[in-house]
Design a protein around this nucleic acid. Structure first.
Length: 767
DNA sequence: ACGAGTGCAGTTTTT
DNA sequence: CTGCACTCGT
């Protein structure tokens, strides 16, 4: 009967599809056909006669949900639309809208993004008279977020002696108080942040058993994709929901857990067996995606991790080619070598742009690749970076819309009260806030009734603003989201201001706003959306992610540039993992803050297993950081990967050979370090010659740092001599000071021409 | 109230 | 190099 659904599946895959009753854990190795199993399993449930309304499928991105829905729809047709599907955040935001009243929110509550949260925290920190350089909003936010993800409330936070001792030791004893104030302010603003969506769902289910009961009966089948990346808060929600039927199916791979930094708990997957004694565990260990070389190389990397479930990923695919290592002199050269290699791959193997991905650890690494790809006329797209919805002009318009819906939204208010400039300055805003606090009313109450207060010069401007918002409010029940939004864009003056800005930037801002309006139009025209109100649009828009952004229509044949985190779940024929340098990947931050090399290694594992046919690993010997060139060492990951799967690219091998021919010659990195230490000595002696003006403060004692940035030639004594040194494949010259500072020239043997900036100095690469 | 000019700190990954 | 916060003059 279900043969059509399980055709072509291997045994464990078939078992996973057909096992529908009772708790099930699917440990799915990379490339083991996990998504296929999940879609077939869901289709199977529906074909069995299960009401799609009673199936809940939680995915990692909304895009993944959309794609999965499409695939299910192909099997079961229209029924697929009724499945509850989406990210934890979007699904439970929806439920919280329904149940908002129970928690004292209204269904119009705003969702604060990370910027809103940090900005609110900053206000609170300042209001309390604390120094925001000590209480950095970033740090405070992370502490609060971490607590929420562990379901520690503000009161529990303050009452916990261990946490308090921690904060005291970090000399940040006020964090608990700030947490409490922050929660209060969010509540007053009728707003929830990302973590609240999960935290409050837990509260809702804890304090309102009848509500919980309703959803427990509704969702007879619960599935969680990417289970290894759920946090405690998310896990508890699913466990509660599945408590009656216990038809809970989680799919994950502990080796691919890469979101510990945001509270994901690998322990969830390890504890699942304890929580469900009757658990069936199915392992999908056959990889269908990658060549044997790639699978085994990935295994050799992950094998170094101690904390992991036993699992053996194998493949019956062919061995394929060895992994190539490309070594570049600088990040710019890295970009060029990757682009060239990509070009050759295309040519030799008949591949198209969309077969390729360039994966990096940090978003800022994308630039070199953009430039080099552009030079070779290879189309690319960048995933992430500054997301569309994070752009200033977009956030501005959205703030107007948010405030129109929810006048308690303090962060939206701060954004728009004087935008465009209407003569309401900081002083006035502060006065309004104080008045509101004194009268124990909201800011909007003051603004809307400004005639009753003594507002001085700004009175008419404030009244103008309040009339504007009032006129918007009148529209929201009568008009659809698009009509309201386009009216707001015009009447607020946002569109006009951008239109009058004739700079390139202003033009693109104007286009972005138009694009936002277009997307609202699409939302309204979409037959699937029953509720076409502005409020309905806002709730979907706040939870969109980078990965959800619509692929630009038209030319989809593009090379993909993205961080490894965003590559999760994707696959490409050819993958370049770039920037494999110590402190960059593995990230210095990660190792300092949590000492978690294992998570970085899992990240490397994820990156490797994205590749189907061919994998390149690249690193540079020097790299720009804060506009300065700094020497880099190859990453420890280069040593950790089993050497028998690797060989050097021809270009790299040639260069290595040249370098060996001149063994005494240092690498460019070593030379720059040498220059650095000399400069540091110079700077140091100069520092000492300067007579201490006041007293010998500790700051004035310059400690020469081995770091290259110490070689800032503005600190060099004038008359610095020209130095040059031969290295493997070129010459570096450091030329004496002129008015512009020192100049370094690297002359490569036998290559083209480029100019680099060495922070203080021009580093001219003559190729 | 607001623009221009200066100085300083910061950069991991994301729902 | 960038973004921001702060100062100063209008």
């Amino acid at each position: 009967m279900f043969e059509d659904l399980t055709k072509g599946l291997n045994d464990p895959q078939r078992e996973a599809v057909l096992h529908t009753e009772g708790p099930l854990m699917i440990i799915a190795g990379a490339g083991s056909g996990k998504t296929r199993v999940l879609t077939q399993r869901t289709a199977h449930l529906i074909k069995k006669g299960i009401n799609p309304f009673s199936i809940l499928l939680l995915t990692f991105t909304n895009k993944a949900a959309g794609e999965m829905r499409e695939r299910i729809e192909k099997v079961v047709g229209h029924d697929a639309r009724a499945i509850w599907m989406g990210t934890f955040h979007s699904v439970f935001a929806k439920i919280l809208r329904f149940e908002a009243k129970s928690l004292g929110f209204t269904s119009d509550f705003s969702i604060y993004d990370t910027d809103d949260s940090k900005s609110l925290l900053k206000s609170i920190i300042k209001e309390r008279g604390l120094d925001d350089k000590v209480y950095k909003p970033n740090v405070v936010f992370n502490r609060i977020s971490g607590a929420k993800n562990r379901l520690v409330s503000a009161d529990a936070y303050l009452a916990d002696p261990i946490i308090q001792a921690d904060d005291a030791a970090a000399r940040l004893p006020e964090i608990g108080r700030l947490y409490k104030l922050y929660v209060d302010r969010c509540f007053k603003a009728n707003a929830m942040d990302f973590d609240d969506l999960l935290f409050n769902t837990n509260i809702l289910f804890r304090d309102f058993p009848d509500v919980l009961n309703k959803y427990q009966h509704k969702f007879k089948y619960v599935m969680v994709d990417e289970f290894q990346d759920t946090n405690v808060s998310q896990y508890l929600i699913t466990r509660k929901l599945a408590a009656i039927h216990e038809n809970i199916c989680v799919v994950g791979d502990d080796a691919q857990s890469i979101y510990a930094f945001r509270g994901a708990n690998i322990q969830n997957i390890l504890n699942f067996e304890k929580d469900y004694p009757g658990l069936t565990t199915i392992r999908l260990e056959q990889n269908y995606r990658s060549t044997k070389t790639i699978v085994e190389a990935a295994n050799s990397v992950i094998a170094r991790n101690k904390r992991q479930l036993r699992k053996e990923v194998y493949t019956e695919n062919e061995s394929g080619q060895l992994i190539e290592v490309i070594k570049a002199a600088s990040d710019v050269e890295e970009g060029r070598l990757v682009a060239t290699s990509l070009f050759e791959e295309k040519l030799n193997n008949g591949l198209i742009n969309s077969d390729f991905a360039v994966l990096y650890r940090t978003n800022s690494q994308s630039r070199a690749f953009e430039e080099s790809l552009r030079k070779l006329n290879i189309k690319y797209r960048i995933v992430g970076g500054l997301s569309f919805y994070q752009r200033r002009e977009i956030k501005d318009l959205l703030a107007y819309l948010r405030f129109t819906i929810n006048q308690n939204d303090e962060e939206a208010f701060k954004r728009i009260i004087n935008l465009p400039k209407r003569g309401i300055g900081d002083q006035t805003v502060a006065k309004i806030a104080v008045t509101a606090a004194e009268q124990n009313v909201t800011v909007w109450d003051v603004v809307a009734n400004i005639q009753h207060y003594n507002a001085g010069r700004s009175a008419s401007a404030i009244e103008g603003f309040s009339d504007l918002i009032k006129s918007f409010k009148l529209m929201i029940d009568k008009k659809d989201a698009y009509e309201v939004a386009s009216h707001v864009a015009k009447a607020s003056g946002i569109l006009k201001e951008l239109y009058e800005d004739k700079t390139v930037e202003g033009l693109s801002r104007y286009e972005n706003v138009q694009e936002l309006l277009n997307s609202i139009k699409q939302f309204v025209d979409n037959q699937d959306n029953e509720d076409k109100s502005l409020g309905a649009f806002l709730q979907t828009v706040s939870l969109l992610t980078n990965a959800d952004e619509s692929d630009e229509d038209g030319d989809n044949d593009r090379v993909t540039l993205m961080t490894i985190h965003q590559a999760k779940g994707l696959e490409y024929k050819v993958v370049y993992i770039v920037g494999l340098e110590e402190d960059l990947f593995p990230s210095q931050m990660m190792l300092q803050s949590s000492d978690d090399l294992e998570e970085e290694r899992r990240l490397f594992y994820v990156a490797i297993t994205r590749a189907e046919k061919r994998l390149y690993l690249t690193y540079a010997e020097t790299r720009y950081q804060y506009g300065r060139l700094k020497p880099c060492e190859p990453s420890r990951f280069m040593d950790e990967i089993d050497g028998k799967y690797i060989h050097l690219s021809r270009a790299a091998a040639r260069r290595m050979a040249e370098m060996q021919r001149s063994t005494e010659r240092p690498t460019p990195a070593a030379f720059l370090r040498n220059v650095a230490s000399k400069a540091a000595q110079n700077g140091g002696s100069q520092e000492k010659r300067t007579p201490p003006t006041r007293s010998a403060t500790p700051q004035s004692t310059h400690v020469p740092s081995p770091d290259f940035r110490a070689s800032d030639p503005r600190k060099l004594a004038s008359g610095q001599r020209v130095e040059h040194q031969k290295f493997g494949y070129g010459t570096v010259k450091l030329i004496s000071n002129d008015q512009n500072g020192a100049k370094a020239v690297i002359q490569f043997d036998n290559q083209g021409e480029k100019t680099l900036l060495l922070g203080f100095a021009k580093l001219r690469i003559v190729e």
